[in-house]
């Protein structure tokens, strides 16, 4: 599966905005909504990406492999779920910390095009060699 890099950057920018709002408002519901967006992103069907495609009809100059960004959406989902759990049980530092980690990755992607979530893969494999993730192309 191929992805439009412009849609990915756009999605990262919206994600950054949403996660800042989560931190400022302390809204577990908003973070839960973002978690759902991450889950769709794993399947390559990010609502933000679809919004981009509805707004911008021109074809991208080049496309890229969708597996790295989809994996990164999975990393985002893990942090979002931990954050929601932190809010739910009232452990505020956990909620804020997990949300901040997701925000850091989203911001680096939106502003610089770096994929922090992708870099996590090799580090996870170094620690857990059995965590092999076969993703169909």
């Amino acid at each position: 599966m191929r992805a439009d890099p412009r849609a990915l950057r756009f999605g990262a920018a919206i994600t950054t905005l949403i996660l800042v709002l989560v931190l400022v408002t302390g809204s577990a519901w908003l973070l839960a909504a973002q978690a759902v967006v991450f889950a769709f992103g794993i399947a390559g069907r990010s609502p933000y990406g679809m919004l981009f495609q509805a707004l911008v009809t021109s074809a991208p100059k080049e496309t890229e492999d969708s597996r790295p960004p989809r994996f990164a959406q999975g990393v985002g989902l893990v942090f979002a779920v931990v954050g929601v759990a932190g809010f739910a049980v009232g452990i505020t530092p956990l909620a804020l910390g997990a949300t901040a980690a997701a925000l850091l990755a989203a911001f680096l992607n939106a502003a610089f095009g770096f994929c922090l979530g992708c870099d996590m893969y090799l580090l996870i494999r170094r620690i857990l060699p059995a965590a092999n993730m076969e993703v169909p192309q």
Binding site: T25, A100, L103, L104, F107, A111, F112, F114
Partner: peptide, 23 residues
């Protein structure tokens, strides 16, 4: 209020990491 500071600190950290990475 804490959340706002966490957000600002995270964005500042991200900007610093991004600039170092670019270089």
């Amino acid at each position: 209020m804490t959340g706002l500071w966490v957000a600002l600190a995270t964005l500042a950290l991200g900007a610093a990491i991004g600039v170092v990475r670019l270089r």
